[in-house]
Structure formats: C-alpha cells, structure tokens
Design a protein around this nucleic acid. Structure first.
Lengths: 161, 161
DNA sequence: GGCGCAAGGTCAAAGAAGGTCAAAAAGGGA
DNA sequence: TCCCTTTTTGACCTTCTTTGACCTTGCGCC
C-alpha cells in the first residue's frame, strides 16, 4: 500500500524524532541497502519530502566519508505529546510547514489519518480566502485551535499550558 | 434497477460504516475491478455522492502507491447546538462575541468547563499579540478549528450513524 | 600532481496510479 | 414523443514513483 518513498520517509522521520537535537546523519548507500533500492531513491525522498518548505535543511558531502545530514529547522521536533509540538508552531505557518507538521504528527501516531485529513482540509479552507501574510497567521491559529481540542480530549496524556 | 453508481456508492458507504474511524482508503482501480467498470466511473461516484456538501472529504494521490481516501466528516451527528453555533462565527470574531459563544456552548453542555477554559485561554493568547483587524480573524480561526475537532472525531468514540 | 576508489548527484525514461472531458446511452417527466 | 438530467465509457492527460546509466567530488596514496 504505502510506497517505498513513504516508508523511507517514515524511517528518516523516525530517526529524526528520536534524535535529541532534531538532526541526523545517514549514508545514502546504507539507507538504500536497508530498503533494498537504488541510492537515487533516497535522493528522491529527500528532494520531495525533506524540503525547506516543510522545514528541513539537507546537507551532504561526497567522497570518502560522505554523508547526508538532515536538520529539522524548527528545533524540538520531538513530539512526546501534542503539547510538545506547540513551540514548533510559530505565529505563522506556511502551507508546506503545516503539511509537514501534520505528516510528522501522523507518523508519530499522535494524529489519526482521519484527524490529519480533517485538519488539512480545515487549514486549507481557512487559508483559502486570505493572502500573505495573513494566511500564515490563520493557518497557525487553526492548527493550534484544533490541537487544543485534541489535547483536551485525551486527558492525562496531553496537556497544554 | 439500481444503477452502477448506486451500487458503488453503497459499497463505499459500507466500508465507511464498518471502519472504526469513518475514514477509508481504496484504490480506484480496485473498486473499478470489483464492479467491472472503467475507473472513471469511480471518479464519477465520488464527484456526485461523496461531496463536501454531504459531509465527505475526499483526498487522493496519483502515481505509484496512489490512493483515494474518503473521510466522513461527522461520524456522529453534529450536536445540534454546535451546528447552530457555526453560522454565528463569521470570518472575524470579536473578543466579546467569542466569550458569548463559549459561554452558551458551556451552558448547553456542549463544552466541559475545562474545555471552555482551554478555549478561552487559547483565544486570548492568540489574539493577544495581534491588532485589529487581524485579531478578529485569528479568534475566528482558532474557535473554528476547535469546533471542527470537537464536532468530528474524538479518539475512541467514533461511530458513524 | 595524478590515480583510483568511495561516496553522493543528475537526469531522463519507464511505470503506476488517479484525473478530465466530452460523447454516447439510458432514464424520467411533461 | 421530446427534452432534460444522470450514467457510462473511453481516449488522453497529469502527477508521482522507481530505476539505471552516467557525472562530480573528496580523499588517500603513490
């Protein structure tokens, strides 16, 4: 069902979430090996999923001892709970960042597919009729609002404040 | 008598009803296969039966690993009070209006005390750093976001119908 | 410096979905 | 019957993924 690309993305995101500082280093060939695919597939994943637009920076170096480094631009990409994600949402949120956020929350199991879909759509609608820079403010506001309610309905697990 | 369209609709609805969370994912080609029809027939069913108007969200992705996702927005009927409150929120919402809204929702028993408090706090926070007219937009966005999550699923208690 | 290996990068072609659109066919009232 | 709406089909389009051949860069070693 889920594509190779999705699985590789999930894997990298997983590493990222475990990392203390939201920054990981991998070898392209290793990842490719792990998923039994060609190395350029990894490049593809990086190019389509870990974009600056979604809040990531990717650096790499070739040659012996080469590596690929992925940095989550927003520090603290460590959602222990929904509340922990809060600081990651600033006053404004681009469409790409919103998308990336929802994806990682979904992958971390903090949002169901359904919740994520609902949030995506609402965010889209709300921001639809606004232009920059206000749309970013709205996106951030909507997402926060929804997270608040989600948190409050899972007492004991998440708490804002 | 019943048309292909009707049968496909019934099938998808059936899947939706037995899903735990009011959200399903199918492949267009699979559904088409099952009913021995062209794939675009499925598109037609989605376009005419699973409209936003009727409370559905349809997302899809092309390419390898593509899918069609159907989300029922309201697994449970929207509480009457909640639905009634919706039109009261326009694009913008003053602090006073927000307060009135929350109070009436709380009094109607649609929000717990804790939830209302949470919403109040969030609304205040969000609007705090913005000036008119933007603060009104933010207030409306936050409240709507929260109501969306409130009126749709809450983890563990989703049922359709 | 020149050589060669060990990374990672590029790009385009092939493959795998789903989307569009308009014409044809089938229903359904007046 | 005539006309209008809804379904069905099918040819063609767009988007996303996967693969593979070939390119570039960094490093260590003569």
């Amino acid at each position: 069902m889920s594509s190779l690309t999705d699985r590789i993305e999930a894997y990298l995101m997983h590493l990222l979430l475990r990392s203390k500082d939201g920054c990981i280093e991998v070898r392209r060939a290793d990842v490719a090996d792990r998923f039994a695919c060609v190395p350029s597939q990894v490049t593809y994943v990086l190019a389509t999923r870990f974009t600056p637009d979604r809040g990531f920076i990717v650096e790499s170096r070739r040659g012996g001892g080469g590596y690929i480094r992925i940095v989550a631009r927003h520090p603290r990409p460590v959602p222990k709970g929904l509340a922990a994600v809060w600081p990651r949402i600033g006053r404004t949120l681009s469409a790409g960042e919103a998308e990336g956020l929802l994806r990682s929350l979904e992958q971390a199991g903090l949002l169901t597919r359904r919740e994520a879909a609902l949030m995506r759509q609402t965010v889209r609608q709300e921001a639809d009729w606004a232009n920059p820079p206000v749309d970013g403010l709205l996106r951030a506001a909507v997402v926060k609002g929804m997270l608040v309610m989600l948190s409050s309905s899972r007492p004991g697990q998440d708490r804002i404040g």
